[in-house]
Structure formats: structure tokens, C-alpha cells
Design a protein around this nucleic acid. Sequence first.
RNA 1: GUGGGCGUAGCUCAGCUGGUAGAGCAUCGCGUUGUGGUCGCGAGGGCCGCGGGUUCAAGUCCCGUCGCUCACCCCA
Length: 445
Amino acid sequence: MSRLAPLSGFPEWSPAERSVEASVLATLRRVFELHGFGEIETRAVEPLERLGGASEASKEVYVLTRRGGETADAEFGLHFDLTVPFARYVEERQGKLTFPFRRYQIQKVWRGERPQEGRFREFYQADIDVVARDVLPAHLEAEVAVVMARALEALPVPAATMRMNDRKLVEGFYRGVGIADVAGALRSVDKLGKIGPEGVAKELAAQGVGEQAADAILELAKIQSADGSFKEAVIDLWETTPTVEDEDAQRLLGEGIASLVALVESVNAAVPGTAMADLSIARGLDYYTGAVYETTLEGHEDLGSICSGGRYDSLVAGGGFPGVGMSIGVSRLVSRLVSQEIVTATRSVPSAVLVAVIDEDTRAASDGIATRLRARGIPCEVAPAASKFGKQIQYADRRGIPFVWFPAAEGDGEVKDIRSGEQVPADADGWNPPVDDLTVRIERR
RNA sequence: GUGGGCGUAGCUCAGCUGGUAGAGCAUCGCGUUGUGGUCGCGAGGGCCGCGGGUUCAAGUCCCGUCGCUCACCCCA
């Protein structure tokens, strides 16, 4: 029996669940396009050397080779995000694209991780990015966040909170208090919520961060505000903390503060109550150089971030293509909606009507009624067997099909709403179901 | 990659200190000979994940292995 166990981390949905996912994807598309993002799709594979080479991420890359190839060595890897293929796409077409280039991309990505709730090995990401030539205006950091906030607003999900930080701010502050390994320190600070201040302090000590510096950056990480008021707290902390002589650090800190104030305030002006400055947000730090974002849903903080991203100096090696982007973890989001039945489909099949079959000799008449309904855009199916009407009604009921059409010897017969039991004579060229019953709908519980 | 938990019917699970399998739900049939959902009666369905060991005897104990799951790492 368990000979056919599902492959963990490779989600496969039932038709009803898939209709929830499809509806989420359709909503995202609509909102992205409303904001002028055009869609691209890139191939599923990249040359291996493009996929992180020796880095940590590359260990998660699924690798592909051809069975009948000359060697068993991998030639390609499946992409593990949409940023890497997008970067390659831009690099290849830099002469043909017009900048700033804004695109959205909704595709599956693959990561060889240990699966858990909300963590998959094959999953959908929905990305938006804006890439500029040489200079990326600061207001675009706010714009991508606003687009994502509006997209999340348009979905049948609880309220989202977008936490934001700025890498220049953090780097300036960390360097100012004398921390050499900024990335390492930030990785520890990122765990604040999980292991607490004592845990972080322990990790920092292990990294050789002095006690005073550790205290200072822990204090920094506590700072949050729903507007620009975090600025005073950061400056106060800076002024009461012993710092090293480093003009770059000073400058970065100042620029970062100004950027983050502007970002939080303009996102909240557009979508009130969404954005929050949170100076503990870390996000790896690999290529991010400005704004960084993380998003959680109210009541589902345990799921982790469902929409993250940031600003980077250049998408293309060698520089010149600064950009900012965010990515929604569609599968993570959908799996939660489905497993907790936060969102459900009104039925498991598209059919609004089951056309009953009296006996096999008159199946053609039933087919004819179905054809005429379909011609007017009413999804329907014909009963699979001419079993007793009770059985045929049960067939419809089990699938959530709201109407059963009973053909008759003369005329088109009658149509029954099996929820109310109401049954009326009807004409297949004129009868319509209520608008709400025409197609499968997605309902927020 | 590291550590914990769990693998028994389609699903959820029970099976005590070893004695060669059970419930509920689901499915199918009948009661109800062409209008469902309730109710009653009945039926089908199990290499007890896989391999090895201990034993007269293993779903049960031991070892291994695979899978699922949770946590860590990392992240959507």
C-alpha cells in the first residue's frame, strides 16, 4: 500500500485545492499587470556554474544529466530561485531591453531541502523586479513593496505585515561598533525571535564580538516603528555607544536611516498599516545592499515570511544594473490556505450542471442538452451511467455540482437545484444558473 | 547534512506482558423497481513499509534499511 507514497516536498493538489492555487496565481498576475509589470518565463535550467558554484546555495541545486549522454556528469541544474535566471536573461538581452525594466515571473523553483510545513523542494515563486541602468531611484524600493502589499490585499488571506530594514543602516552601525564580520553577526541577530537575546549574545561571543558591541547591536535589533520614528532611537543608541573612527560607517548609517524612513513612510502612505521598520530583519546579506523586506500574515507568523526581497547593487556581474525585487512564496501561502481551510473551493469540479441520463438509448439527448448549455458558457457534464436518478443526484452531490438536469421524452425536461430541492421545467437554450453558481468560486472562510 | 517521532484497510487509528488482525469513516450491494443526503442489514478490501535476527510462534522484541514527519541549518 505505502508502496506508492507521495514524494515529500513535491506538493500535488486535488482539483479543488489546485483551483485555490490557480485563483491565487490569477490574482497575482492581475495585480502585477495593473502596475505595469510584464511577464516573462525563463527556462527551468541554468548551466551549473551559474547556479552558485561553490556557495552554500549550490548544495541545494538539483542537477540534470542525460541518460544516454556520454558522461554521467551533470550539465544543468534546476533554478532555485527566479532572480538568477532573470539576471542571466537581462545580461543576455541588455542591448534589447529598455530600462528601467520591470517584469514579473511566476514559475516553479527547486531546492533540495528537508521539507517541512510550508517548505517544499518544488514550489511556485511569484517575483517582481525593477532593474535600472546605472541608477535606481529610491522610490522604486517603495513601489515594489506597494505592489506586493496590494497583491496580498487582493488575496483572500489575513492582513500582511511587511517588515523592512536597510542594509546600509545595519552595515554602518555594525562597522561603527567595530564588528568585522557584519554578515555573520546579522545571521545571529536574525535568530532573535527563535533563540532570544541570550542565545544571540552567546553566538556573537563565539564569533569574537565584544560584549559592548553585542549589547549595542542587540539594542539596535529591538528597534521597531510603524513610521519614521525609529530614527531617533537609532541616533540615541549610536550616540551612547562607543564607536570606532570610520567615516564610511557614519555615511552608510546616515544614508540607511534616511532611506528607511522614506521607505516606511511612503509604503504606509499608499497602503496604510502595512509597513514597519524592524531593525532585526537580516535576510542573508549576500547581494542585498539597501532595502530588505520580509512579510508575515497575521495569525500565521509561524509560517515565516511569505514575501521577501530587497535591493541589490547589480543584477549583472560587473555592475551597472541596480535593481529591487520581491518574491511571494506562492506554494507556502497556498499550502497554509488549503491545509487550514482558510480558503476553500465551492466545488471539486468545474461543472455547474450534471445532465442525467435516462437510459443508454437516450444518452444522445442528454449530450445534446449539455452541448447547448456549453454553447452558452455553462460548464456541465453528462452522467457517466444511466443509473437510478438517486445515484445520479448523489454523483452530483459528492462533487458539489449544484444542478441536475433531467431530460424528458418531450421538451428539455427539468432542472433541479439539489441544495434546495427546487425543480423547474427548463429550456436548454435559455436557462441560466445564478451567477454565483456558474463557475467554481474560491471562498474565504 | 544533524537529531527526535512515526510506518497496521482508500482515510483516521486500535491491537495490553509475543499466540498467524480489528473499529470508525469511505466504497459497493440490498431494504427503497428511476429523484440523493437519514436509518437498518450485508459485502469487498491487509506481503501489519522492506530485509534480516531471536523464538515452537513476531504486527508486537532486536538490528539494518527505506519512507513519512517534526526540529536544527537555510530559506518562499
